[in-house]
Amino acid sequence: MEHDLDRVKCAIDGDRYALQELLHAEKSKLYRMAFAYVRNEDEAVEIFQQTVLKCIESIHQLKKPEYFSTWLTRICINESLSVKRKGKRLNLLTELLKQPGHQDFSGTLAHGMDVKDALEALPDKYKTALMLRFYQDLSIQDIANVLDCPIGTVKTNIHRGLTSLKSKLKGVYEDEPGKRFN
């Protein structure tokens, strides 16, 4: 998302109204990314809140206003992964139900799995790469900057993520002409 650079500069200089406008513009993307990691409204809201607080605390350190959006995204991803790592939420039953071999628990699960379910079930590193590339529309180079990793790693994770996503969706869309996920 591109912002008015002057507004970002004002926010960096301490203009809280400018910062408020910027955060309102980013809120839906940040919340939905957080939700994709934790799949729980309360925790996604908590991640969003922590992201907002960290933004307020450290925006004066942001050196390049044009990277405000990617900088904020990075904070949100780090917060999301941190919440997951701390084991605040262990929805093991959901995980079990979504694993291959456990689909008999729910006869309709395989057919009910859509792109959202499949994306949320991906390992975090693939999910992150796909969300940054196809949801945030970042370039490979920008993703490498956000994640602090080599471009090759980003490409690998996108490729593996898409392969895994397609594999999870196999049999859902393939059978329906016009809905093939390619």
């Binding site: 408020q20 919340y31 990314m33 809201v45 809140q49 907002v52 607080l53 792109v115 994306l119």
Partner: peptide
């Protein structure tokens, strides 16, 4: 992928409250 992620309902009131309170009180 975009439409999948965008299908997550947004708790708009909660998010607005967080932004408005945090920005001026934190």
């Amino acid at each position: 992928i975009k439409s999948a992620i965008n299908s997550t309902p947004l708790p708009e009131d909660r998010l607005n409250q967080i932004i408005n309170q945090s920005v001026f009180n934190h």
